[in-house]
């Protein structure tokens, strides 16, 4: 904006207030400071002038609300000027998503989504908000299979989530149905990994010296230890080679990248580095790719892959006898 371009100062200050109040709640003193320090048209104004400006905005249809905090009134724009163009399906979808997120029983994701809903509500019309509340009530009364996917974890999940965010080592008791005895494991928990039905706690086992995944179904106990996690940032990529049709049409997953000029690469192949924490999951995915995929690094993963294939073939041999 050219400083010499003529503007209407009063109108400018009023729109400036609107712009700031759309972002957060502000007191009259804070609004005065904003105008005083403005780069384009700074000016000292009185409290009465600010009130007049707020009245102007209200008269123009801007929904200015006020709240009291510590004996001071704060003002904010309740509804943004440009609203979302939603239809009934969008609102239903939003309510359904909120319901689904709540069924994950993970406080961080629930809180993140609540933040998102808080922001979104400022961009919804009053009718849309009413419809949203109606859909929420309807969903509370109906339970769907989708919302019950992780019900069985509702007790252990908050503990497991806490263990990931605290940055402390934990002691877990783990027993698969096939195990005769419960295993005692020290773990530096990193994250919870969901698939469509189950949840794994993934972390670094400092005694085994590798990342491991534990199904929440079989964790009998989680207890925090006084030691801090030391191996937070271990990135252990697995590299695999893709050949033939897979090399042509492969879409990278979220935690993957192509590796250029790798020693493992040849003419018709590409190399992918994967930073997946759950190596077991990755191994099974790579099996699906058949002969078009070869695990190349690290050697331990490559050997484990070969071992898995051999064991699978052995299963077929045994079953035919």
């Amino acid at each position: 904006m050219n400083k010499k371009t003529k503007i209407n100062s009063t109108a400018y200050r009023i729109m400036l207030l609107m712009k700031n109040l759309a972002q957060k709640s502000l007191s009259i003193d804070e609004l005065i400071t904003i105008i005083e320090n403005d780069e384009i048209d700074p000016k000292f104004i009185s409290r009465e002038a600010v009130i007049k400006y707020l009245n102007t905005l209200k008269s123009a249809g801007v929904n200015i609300c006020k709240i009291k905090k510590n004996r001071t009134y704060y003002y904010y724009v309740d509804k943004q000027p440009q609203l979302l163009n939603m239809d009934k399906n969008d609102i239903s979808s939003l309510a359904f998503t909120e319901n689904y997120i709540n069924s994950l029983y993970q406080n961080k994701i629930i809180n993140d989504f609540a933040k998102f809903m808080n922001i979104t509500s400022k961009f919804l019309t009053d009718d849309d908000l009413k419809l949203l509340n109606k859909e929420r009530k309807k969903l509370k009364q109906t339970q769907t299979k989708l919302n019950n996917n992780y019900n069985k974890y509702r007790d252990i999940l908050p503990k497991a989530e806490q263990s990931c965010s605290d940055g402390q080592r934990v002691f877990i008791k783990y027993r698969l149905p096939s195990d005769e005895m419960t295993k005692n494991i020290t773990l530096e928990p990193k994250l919870l990994k969901y698939d469509s039905k189950n949840i794994c706690l993934i972390g670094y086992n400092p005694i085994a010296g590798e990342k491991q995944a534990f199904l929440l179904d079989y964790i009998e106990e989680i207890r925090q230890l006084p030691q801090k996690s030391k191996y937070d940032n271990i990135m252990t990529p697995v590299m695999f080679k893709l050949k033939g049709r897979l090399a042509k049409g492969y879409n990278l997953y979220d935690n993957e990248k192509f590796v250029e000029n790798s020693e493992y690469q040849d003419e018709d192949s590409i190399i992918v580095a994967n930073y997946e924490d759950d190596k077991e999951y990755l191994l099974k995915r790579l099996l699906r790719y058949g002969e078009y995929c070869e695990a190349v690094y690290p050697k331990s993963f490559r050997n484990k892959f070969i071992q898995t294939v051999k064991e699978t073939l052995l299963n077929y041999e045994k079953s035919s006898h």
Partner: peptide
């Protein structure tokens, strides 16, 4: 209210 501000809004 400010009429100019009103018009601008």
């Amino acid at each position: 209210i400010s009429l100019t501000g009103f018009r601008c809004a």
